[in-house]
Design a protein around this nucleic acid. Structure first.
Length: 469
DNA sequence: GGAACTCGCCAC
DNA sequence: AAACGTGGCGAGTTCC
């Protein structure tokens, strides 16, 4: 594509995308029905056992005394009433409508053992009702056909439903194993997942062209997340390879500061997340011997004291200063782009994505910034999906694209075709894509995971794709 | 008995 | 001055 993508180009992308996502829907993904039925029964028994034990507790008896026949331990409305009216406890957080929150985090802070059990039951019910049950309900002759929609989102991303193929548990190990064990390749095949690494960060860079960011994205020796971890946790000899503790803090920097900042969050929330979730330093428990371990046997609480950060409030100010440095100095060109982008929208009433799509309507600042990036990033995946689908068809290969998760494509692969297909996907995503769209000015990279023949999706492991020379 | 709502929670 | 983007979906609830 020689010139800037037009509305017609955008239309063509959706047109082609709908056709090949439709093909993926038709192929579907194999589900182990017998496993799901067994697991459903197992989970039900486990849930019922926990519920029986819980019902006998004093906490639940008091609850039942008030609600009688309508007592339901899974009603958050009743729970809110019991905790914050009857017992007079103070909620750490409120919902958007002003009620005391009953989410996992808030309940955990109350230190009531029965609530910990209730959270455990909630997790099991989530797995059973949202995933295993949905798989059984939606499957036809042992095949699921998740829908992939291109017409439902404000950002021109996709969505998926019946069942939603894009939110199957991954991070929680237990939930991941139970749910993904149900999904398998067709007999004799393997499931292959290929995802772009840091796609949204790279696509954002194509808009703002910040020099510091460009350097991070093109150099093998610089690492943005380590650099920020060094700053946030005041560790001059930061070494994520040498110390597992530092690797943890790098994840903290990435998920507790950098990504939220890119989405428009601010230091106040970052400080809470970094301290409580990542450093394990409760806002009231800041001090010697507190928090996650550091190399050498001391804790991060000891470490912060030695660096002069003695209270949570001081840490907030510390993170505030880092935020100012982050946008004011380190990524100042990124910051300037955000300001220009917003001003352009406020003047024109719309903005155009790199891929030819136009966003109109009333939007908040963060939405104006984020939509442009999210949409164009997904279109990189969609274009790749279309090309791979076309090549598979042209070459009369038997492997099949079966789904997509925003920056990842999932293929049901015939083992004999794995190398050829790996090469095709690598070439499409890392070479052809940037030739098609000249606005892609940073190198894109992909990572892959694969399951052995006939093994379920829970057993995927890293897979090296062939290099394109 | 269904529509529409809130809340919580899973993914990127 | 304010303060995290996009989705789908289940359970509970309320309203009609």
């Amino acid at each position: 594509m020689a010139v800037k993508p037009t509305t017609l180009d955008a239309y063509q992308l959706i047109h082609d995308g709908v056709l090949c996502l439709g093909r993926a829907e038709q192929v579907g993904i194999r589900v182990d029905v017998q496993y799901c039925e067994q697991k459903k029964e197992f989970l039900t028994k486990k849930i019922e056992r926990s519920e029986r034990l819980l019902k006998e507790t004093e906490f639940m008896r008091d609850w039942r005394r008030k609600y009688g026949a309508s007592f339901n331990m899974h009603s958050n409305q009743q729970l809110e009433d019991i905790l914050y009216n009857v017992m007079g406890l103070k909620a750490a957080k409120e919902t958007t409508s002003g009620a005391g929150s009953t989410d996992e985090d808030t309940l955990g802070q109350l230190g009531i053992p029965e609530l910990d059990s209730l959270i455990q039951v909630r997790k099991l019910k989530k797995i059973r009702d949202t995933y295993i049950d949905a798989f059984l309900r939606e499957q036809v002759n042992g095949i699921l056909h998740p829908f992939f929609n291109l017409h439902t989102t404000k950002t021109y991303r996709s969505s998926s439903n019946s069942p939603n193929f894009q939110n199957i548990p991954k991070r929680d190990k237990e939930a991941m194993k139970i749910c993904r064990r149900a999904l398998k390749p067709r007999p004799g095949n393997q499931l292959l997942e290929v995802d772009f690494s840091g796609l949204e960060v790279s696509i954002a860079a194509c808009y703002h062209k910040d020099k510091t960011m460009m350097k991070y994205l093109t150099s093998d020796h610089s690492d943005m997340h380590s650099d920020l971890a060094e700053q946030l946790f005041i560790i001059p000899d930061f070494d994520k390879v040498k110390y597992p503790e530092h690797k943890h803090l790098r994840n903290a920097s990435k998920n507790g500061f950098i990504f939220p900042q890119f989405y428009g969050d601010y230091y106040g929330n970052n400080a809470v997340s970094l301290a409580v979730q990542w450093a394990k330093l409760g806002q009231g428990a800041w001090g010697p011997g507190q928090g996650v371990a550091m190399p050498g046997g001391l804790t991060i609480g000891d470490h912060f004291l030695s660096k002069g950060i003695r209270h949570f409030d001081q840490f907030v100010q510390h993170v505030k200063a880092i935020e100012e440095d982050f946008w004011g100095k380190r990524f100042w060109e990124y910051q300037k782009w955000k300001e220009r982008w917003l001003a352009q929208y406020q003047k024109a009433g719309y903005f155009d994505l790199k891929t030819g799509f136009r966003c109109t309507g009333v939007m908040r600042k963060n939405e104006v910034i984020n939509y442009a990036v999210q949409g164009a990033a997904f279109h990189c995946l969609l274009w790749s999906f279309i090309q791979v689908d076309r090549i598979i068809t042209e070459r009369k290969m038997q492997s099949r694209l079966i789904g997509q998760i925003h920056d990842a494509l999932i293929v049901d692969v015939v083992p004999e075709e794995l190398d050829e297909l790996g090469f095709i996907i690598r070439k499409v995503t890392c070479v052809d894509l940037a030739k098609h769209w000249k606005w892609i000015i940073v190198p894109l990279d992909v990572e892959a995971d694969i399951c052995e023949v006939d093994a379920p999706w829970s057993e995927k492991h890293g897979h090296k794709l062939p290099e394109v020379v």
